[in-house]
Amino acid sequence: MATTIDVMGQFKLTTALGPVGASVNFTQSNLTMVVICALILALLHLGMAPRAVVPGRLQAAAEMLYGFVHRMCIDQIGEEGKAFFPFIFTLFSFILFGNLFGLVPYQFTITSHLAITAGLAVFVIVLATFVGLRTHGLHFFSYFLPEGLPIFLAPLIVAVEVISYLSRPISLSFRLFANMMAGHVVFEVFASFMVAMAASLGAIGYVMAVGPFALDVAMTGFELLVAALQAYVFAVLACMYLHDAVHLH
C-alpha cells in the first residue's frame, strides 16, 4: 500500500519549452499564461470579426465581457474609470481565463501561485498609489486622515489607516491564491480517493469510487462559480482602490 496522496504536486513548478525554456527559467505557469493570452485575444478578434449589428454567440460573448468590465469601471471609479478600462480589462480577463483554464484537467492554474497573485496585487496597489499622487500631489496623504477627526486621535487613526492600506495587497493576493489552491487541493484529494479505493478494494473499490467522482463533478460546477467570482472580486477591489486614489474617499 504505497499509495501516497500528493495533493501539492500539482502546484510544483517545472520549466517548459525544453532546454530553451529551462535556460531562461520559463515555467509551465508562463506557458499557461501565453495560452491564456492567446485565448483572450482569440475570443476578442475572432468574436468581433463579423462586426455584426446583431451579434452571433461568440461576438455576444466578447461584447458581454467588454461591456461587463466597462460598466464595472464606470460604476466603481466614475467617469475617470474609462482611462483605467484597458488595464482593468487585462487584469480581469487574465485572472478569469487563468482560473477557468486551471479547471481543464491536467492544466496548470496560474492563480494558485501566491507569487503570481501577489505580483498582480502589489502592482494594483502601487498603481493606485501613483495615480493618487499624480492626481492630488502630496494632498493624497490626507487620505490617511479622515476629515473632522479630533486631533488627539490622529496618530492612532493614521496608523490604522496606513496599516489597512498596506494590508490591501496581502488580502487581495491571499484571497485569490487561497481560493484557487483550496479548490484544486479538494479536487486532488477526491481523485486520490478514487485511485486508492480502486487499488486497494478491487471491484468493490471501483463501485465505491463513484462517490468521490460524483463529488469531483459537483466540485467542478462549484469551482466554475469560484473562478468567475474571484476574478470579479479581484477586479472590483482593484477598481475600488483606484476610485479611492482618484477621489480620496
Binding site: N25, H45, Y66
Partner: peptide, 30 residues
Amino acid sequence: NPLTTSQVVWGALIFVVLYVLLSRGALPKV
C-alpha cells in the same frame, strides 16, 4: 526555487504584452 520568482518576471512581461495587445488592438475593435 528560482522558478517561483522567474515565473513572476515572465508573467509580468506576458501581462504587459497582453495589456498592449488589448489596449491597442482588441479593445478598440470591440
